[in-house]
Amino acid sequence: MTQYFSLHQGRWQLAVEGDNYQATRHIAAQCQHFIADDEDEQVDDQLRSCVNCARRRWLVGAIECTALSVRPV
C-alpha cells in the first residue's frame, strides 16, 4: 500500500487534488484497514475511498493514512 503514499517526517501522505477521488477509491478498494468514517464526515459518494476512511487525517491538499503510519503494509 505504501507505493501510493509518500513519507513525510514519519507520516504517510497522499495528495488529493480537488474532487478527483479516482486514486483514493482505487487504494481503498484493496485496503484491509479501511473503516468508514461517520457519514457526515464523508466527502466521496463512493463509500470505499480513502477520503471517507476514519483512519485518514485531513491535511491541506492531502490526507495522511494513520493506519500506514502505525504499521506499513
Binding site: 468514517d37 476514519a54 485518514r56 487525517r57 485531513w58 491535511l59 491541506v60
Partner: peptide, 18 residues
C-alpha cells in the same frame, strides 16, 4: 450544523477537525 475548522499538522485533531 457541522463546521469545518483549519486542518494543520500543529492541530491535534484525529481525522477531520470539525
Amino acid at each position: 450544523t457541522r463546521h469545518q475548522l483549519f486542518v494543520h499538522p500543529d492541530i491535534p485533531y484525529t481525522s477531520h477537525n470539525s
